[in-house]
């Protein structure tokens, strides 16, 4: 079983271009709020690896992800991206809902990030569509797609700029169990190829253990790290890996920390 193999996670050569994410003394207080949401949080997420942030819904893990994306500014401390500087499109975000532009075809949705930077790279669009298995749907409008297909378009859009930091906010949260499982494979394969640093927020510990190299359990107010656990084994892992004894043990231990 893959979980039990030698821990040679990630691709060190590609990881060299991906940043490590370090939260240093991070604090965040909403204007007018009595208590801070985050207060003095320190956490390191390794370069070129997949880290899963797990916690009860509403605990602030999505906010942490937005801070990492630069969509929010911290009120104290900082978010350090350690590694070579990120170029345009070096950072990509996948939201819980696919957020496709309804008036654009699949292909034009995927090429949007390139277009915003004044680039036209049909080959990159082609590669991204192919990575999520949507080459045949390129000319369709989003309303013609299922929920799972829309999520795949959203992933392709995130991949098209070849980001070295990929942030995902519960990307499977709104999908049914069967679709979710089929997408796990697509996502995991896509990341593995690119060797980016991936931060994924989820409330599903089993999913975290299956997909991530490091699982961080978050909780409390202010938000604090309850547990950190590295999951050994090569990625991508087959879906059956979730039933391996080591995986089950990891899930149990992390659930206890929740």
């Amino acid at each position: 079983m893959s979980v039990e193999r030698t821990p040679s996670v990630g691709q060190p050569d590609r990881a060299a271009t991906a940043p490590a994410v370090r939260f240093v003394g991070l604090g965040l207080r909403w204007a007018g709020a009595a208590a801070p949401l985050i207060d003095g949080l320190d956490l390191e997420l390794p370069a070129g690896r997949v880290s899963a942030l797990v916690g009860a819904s509403g605990c602030g893990k999505s906010t942490l992800l937005r801070l990492a994306a630069g969509l929010l500014a911290p009120s104290a401390g900082e978010v350090r991206l350690e590694g070579p500087p990120l170029g345009p499109g070096g950072r990509a975000f996948v939201f819980q809902s696919p957020n496709l532009l309804a008036w654009r075809t699949v292909e034009d949705n995927v090429s949007l990030p390139l277009q915003l930077q004044g680039r036209s790279e049909p080959a990159a669009v082609e590669a991204a569509l192919s990575a999520v298995g949507l080459l045949g749907a390129r000319a369709l409008l989003p309303r013609a797609l299922s929920g799972g297909m829309r999520m795949r378009v959203s992933l392709a859009r995130a991949l098209v700029t070849r980001p070295s930091l990929l942030l995902l906010d519960e990307p499977f949260g709104a999908l049914d169990a069967i679709t979710r499982r089929s997408l796990h494979g697509v996502f995991a394969a896509a990341w593995a190829e690119r060797g980016a640093t991936v931060l994924m927020v989820t409330h599903d510990i089993e999913e975290a253990v299956l997909l991530a190299d490091r699982v961080v359990v978050l909780g409390g107010q202010p938000l604090s790290v309850r547990a950190v656990r590295d999951i050994p084994g090569d990625r991508p892992r087959p879906d059956s890996a979730r039933y391996a004894p080591a995986a089950i043990e990891a899930v149990r231990a992390l659930e206890a920390a929740l």
């Binding site: 937005r66 969509l71 950072r91 975000f93 957020n99 990030p113 930077q117």
Partner: peptide
């Protein structure tokens, strides 16, 4: 959709 605005901001 505010998330679509965030998406655009993210890509500068």
């Amino acid at each position: 959709d505010p998330e679509q605005v965030e998406l655009f901001r993210l890509y500068g």
